[in-house]
Design a binder for these strands. Structure first.
Length: 889
RNA sequence: GGGCGGUUAACUCAGUGGGAGAGUGCUACCUUCACACGGUAGAAGUCACUGGUUCAAUCCCAGUACCGCCCA
């Protein structure tokens, strides 16, 4: 017996720790800057430095790790670039909360001290998410880990900003933006989450001057009326065709505002009269520009009403709403209040209701950048997988609006712009200027805003590789091979990387974009803290092991469909890991030294069958991973390991391994066992890295890490496996015989300890040959006392019968047969055959089918019909015999 | 309002223009020398509904219903 060092059940925890450390120490994750091998690169979607590992990361990282480990086994020079994102608003919020606990705030600290505090926080907690990624087995090149606020990446950010500014693609202007009063900053359109809210629609009369009559407008935000600068009606609106008045009086403010005509106004909505508030509504802002209306900002950046709000100055915006409504009511100008379910924007970071607000901000003019990004995908230079996301990408790119990139927070890349306090000149530069280039004044004030976090993320594929320097790393690995991401950041991140990559590297950032699903809870709901349905990946890893968890994620990662995750499902795949473990344990008990694969003439039919199947599985697993069909790879390996290797081959190999068939057969079988286990481990390694590495080190002849093992088929030192359809067919026959006998045993309630005698009768020489050649095998697996193979029609009296392709099995049940039971079993089998025959008859009696269907299909149906007829006939005759015997009693 | 996806066994999901699949669960039997996180066998589905194309539709097309997501 060989070494038996493996425990009975697989214990993941120590194994995971041990091998992860080993991989890192051995430098197995490291990419080479220059190498003959084909480069393969992935940049990780950088998790927020404040992040804690969630299911989305787990899936994302698992899939990337599968690709990287697989490509390494194919001999590629793999770079998996890791890092974290400084996550401006999110991180600032976390640190501010911490300050609040200490009864202080950022304003008390001042900008510099606050930023120091953030860096301190990062030093203390910033590696948490990285350590969690390591628990998942992520094989990133950690030596190259980057952070979006690193000096190198900051330089890239400044360079990009300056260059875009000089090309006229960055500008500064007064526009309506989304303002979060809590975070005290502008937000990009994408950063606003819309949510349906039960609100009210207030109908307000704006009287004509000197009249009680007037126009009635409707609004969900009555406090904004204080900043109205016009009322608009549609020029095609019949109701206002004869309107003579040119102005109305703005209630509460006693200000006359003009009535304008603009086709934007919806004829169907409300009264058809629209109040226009250019400072607090994006559409009104556009109307205001068209009609050169003034903008009156009544809600301040602090969420309080401004001096422009007159008597309402200083009130909170929501308190003001109530007060405005009361005041209107008192003046009889509030016509009615309707309930209205409408969508309201919230800050994606803190969920505060955002306010459209007029403000001076920096913008990127994205249309020219988007055009290039569209072309690149249309030309196939970047492929989006699955392809249905391509249209979404185009739609968004075609309708893109300028990107507001300035944020009024402190944590982030400060905009490299200075204003001369003497002459007002704006200077945008990589390094701080000392004097004004226009007036030579020395009083320069730096812009206080920082950049949107996604501005630096957009540069990630090249900034992490050293750009703007022309590094070897960039030369080798840009463009990267694949980007793996969830569709939730397709616009935030992927689209912007495309634009920046094309603009600054003159090439796409990645060849493939693989868009994976979102992980939801077991009922399909989004996981969220407030719903309390969050499953913590680390708890799952603790309970079931990383490999089981990874395999579960992979098995459910079908393209274009969300994953519903529950711990129950992970449990099922833990059983699979344990099954693999025990199969290996069995094999290793018999393997003391590496055994060469014997030549074909020394192999049995089952040997040739499992080797042929191994070859197929190797090819299909490679194809599945190449095409990002991760679930197919997982399903196939599961099926092969459990239901082919374990269920059949291991059982079939036992007599030989235990020496019942001589040392030559034992050695040959060990050779097959070694090879199949060897290939299987390498195939599984990308999905389940830890357990496969652990087993690998017990496999005689396997050298150092499984991470250095070439993919099966790429290894020139091992013989090539060949497809063997003959052996596959013969093995299928043996399986049918064994299953047929087991079926009778099960259906007739005969315990496994009862040894049976079986006669196989067949007119087919091949079938008789195969079964006779593997008599011992059948006896062993079907638990028989005796097996006779014959061509004559000898029918034992008291027997149960199974009809398989071109053969009949008689299971002798002398003395124990229950004729009624056997008759019932046969009738059931006949019923099944009847159903099939009915369907086939119907097809064959259809002249159109015979005429129009392809020949191969017709031939197949005819063959099936003949087979089922034979089976039916045989079953009928057995039934008659059993009924006669039953009558005899 | 616009767009996208889903509806297949009790549950979770694969899948294909030509005989409906898996895992879990369920039932029966079995602690047989890798594994009870196991073995053997079994039961279980009008492939949401209505039309159409086709020799043939669970699959393609159109519409309906319900569920979910994204965008405005």
């Amino acid at each position: 017996m060989g070494s038996n060092l493996l425990a009975k059940g697989y214990e993941p925890h120590d194994v995971e720790k041990k091998w992860y450390r080993y991989w890192e120490e051995e430098g197995l994750f490291d990419a080479l800057e220059e190498n003959q091998a084909q480069p393969y690169a992935i940049v990780i979607p950088p998790p927020n430095v404040t992040g804690v590992l969630h299911m989305g990361h787990a899936l994302n990282v698992t899939l990337q790790d599968i690709l990287c480990r697989y490509r390494r086994s194919r001999g590629d020079n793999v770079l998996w670039m890791p890092g974290t994102d400084h996550a401006g608003i999110a991180t600032q919020n976390v640190v501010e909360r911490k300050l609040a606990e200490q009864k202080t705030d950022r304003h008390a600290l001042g900008r510099e001290k606050f930023i120091e505090a953030v860096w301190d926080w990062r030093a203390e907690y910033g590696s948490a998410i990285i350590n969690q990624l390591k628990r998942l087995g992520a094989s990133c090149d950690w030596q190259r880990e980057r952070f979006t606020m690193d000096e190198g990446l900051s330089r890239a950010v400044r360079k990009v900003f300056v260059q875009l500014y000089e090309e006229g693609l960055i500008y500064r202007g007064d526009y309506i933006i989304n303002w979060c009063h809590r975070c005290h900053t502008a937000l990009a359109d994408l950063e606003v989450e819309h949510e349906e809210i039960d609100g009210h629609l207030y109908h307000i009369r704006y009287p004509f001057p000197g009249s009680d009559d007037g126009l009635v407008v409707a609004t969900t935000r009555p406090e904004t009326m204080l900043g109205d600068t016009a009322v608009a009606v549609n020029p095609d609106d019949e109701r206002y065709r004869g309107l003579n008045a040119t102005h109305v009086v703005l209630p509460l403010m006693a200000r006359e505002i003009p009535i304008i005509r603009d086709s934007y106004v919806d004829l169907e909505f409300g009264t058809g009269a629209l109040k226009v508030t250019p400072a607090h509504d994006p559409n009104d802002f556009e109307i205001g520009r068209r009609h050169e209306l003034p903008s009156v900002k009544v809600i301040g950046d602090d969420g309080l009403m401004t001096a422009e709000a007159g008597a309402f100055e200083g009130q909170d915006r929501f308190g003001c709403r109530r007060n405005v409504v009361e005041a209107l009511k008192a003046q009889g100008l509030l016509i009615k209040i309707e309930d209205l379910n409408h969508s309201v924007g919230h800050c994606y970071r803190c969920k505060t209701v955002v306010e459209p607000n007029l403000s001076t901000q920096w913008f990127v003019k994205v249309k020219p950048l988007a055009a290039k990004a569209i072309d690149a995908v249309e030309a196939g230079r970047t492929k989006i997988i699955p392809p249905n996301w391509t249209q979404t990408y185009y739609d968004w790119m075609y309708n893109i609006r300028d990107w507001c990139i300035s944020r009024q927070i402190w944590w982030g890349h400060r905009i490299p712009a200075w204003t001369c306090e003497d002459c007002g000149e704006v200077i945008v530069a990589m390094e701080e200027p000392t004097t004004c280039r226009a007036c030579s004044g020395a009083r320069l004030a730096r812009e206080t805003d920082v950049l949107d976090t996604w501005f630096s993320s957009a540069l990630w594929p090249f900034s992490t590789m050293g750009w703007p320097d022309q590094t070897k790393l960039l030369k080798t690995f840009y463009p990267t091979s694949t980007l793996v991401t969830g569709f939730d950041i397709l616009f935030f991140w992927v689209a912007r990387m495309m634009m920046m990559g094309l603009q600054f590297m003159d090439d796409v950032p990645f060849r493939d974009v693989y868009v994976h699903a979102l992980v939801r809870d077991e009922h399909g709901k989004k996981m969220s803290k407030s719903k309390g349905n969050v499953i913590d990946p680390l708890n799952v890893i603790e309970a079931y092991g990383t490999d089981a968890f990874r395999f579960t994620l992979t098995a459910f990662a079908a393209q274009g469909r969300d994953i519903k995750m529950s711990e129950k499902r992970v449990e099922g795949y833990r059983h699979f890991i344990n099954k693999l473990w025990n199969a290996a344990r069995f094999a290793l008990m018999h393997l003391e030294t590496p055994e060469d694969l014997p030549t074909n003439d020394q192999l049995t039919v089952p040997d040739r069958w499992i080797l042929s199947r191994t070859r197929t599985v190797v090819e299909e697993t490679a194809a599945a991973i190449d095409e990002y069909r991760f679930n197919d790879a997982a399903a196939q390996l599961y099926q092969f390991v459990w239901h082919e290797f374990c269920d059949w081959y291991v059982e079939m190999s036992k007599p030989a391994l235990y020496g019942n068939q001589g040392e030559n057969r034992a050695r040959a079988t060990r050779g097959v066992l070694w090879r199949v286990l060897h290939d299987m481990l390498i195939l599984l390694h990308p999905l389940t890295p830890f357990v496969t590495e652990e087993i690998w080190h017990q496999l005689p002849g396997a050298e150092d890490s499984i991470m250095r093992a070439p993919f099966p088929g790429d290894n020139e030192r091992l013989p090539t496996l060949t497809a063997d359809p003959e052996a596959e067919a013969a093995t299928a026959t043996l399986m049918q015989v064994i299953t047929g006998i087991r079926n009778i045993r099960g259906e007739m309630n005969i315990g496994p300890s009862m040894k049976l005698s079986v006669i196989l009768q067949s007119d087919d020489n091949d079938i008789r040959g195969v079964v006779a050649d593997h008599r011992d095998l059948v006896i062993n697996l079907a638990r028989l006392e005796d097996l006779e193979v014959t061509s004559t029609g000898a029918k034992p009296k008291a027997s149960a019968t199974a009809v398989i392709d071109k053969a009949t099995l008689y299971v002798s049940l002398e003395g124990i047969i229950d004729f009624q039971q056997e008759a019932a079993r046969l009738r059931k089998e006949i019923g099944k055959a009847d159903t099939e025959l009915g369907k086939l008859d119907k097809k064959l009696s259809n002249a159109d089918f015979l005429e129009k269907a392809p020949e191969s299909v017709v031939a197949k149906v005819k063959r099936q019909h003949a087979d089922f007829s034979d089976k039916h006939k045989a079953l009928m005759s057995h039934l008659e015999r059993i009924e006669a015997l039953a009558a005899d009693g």
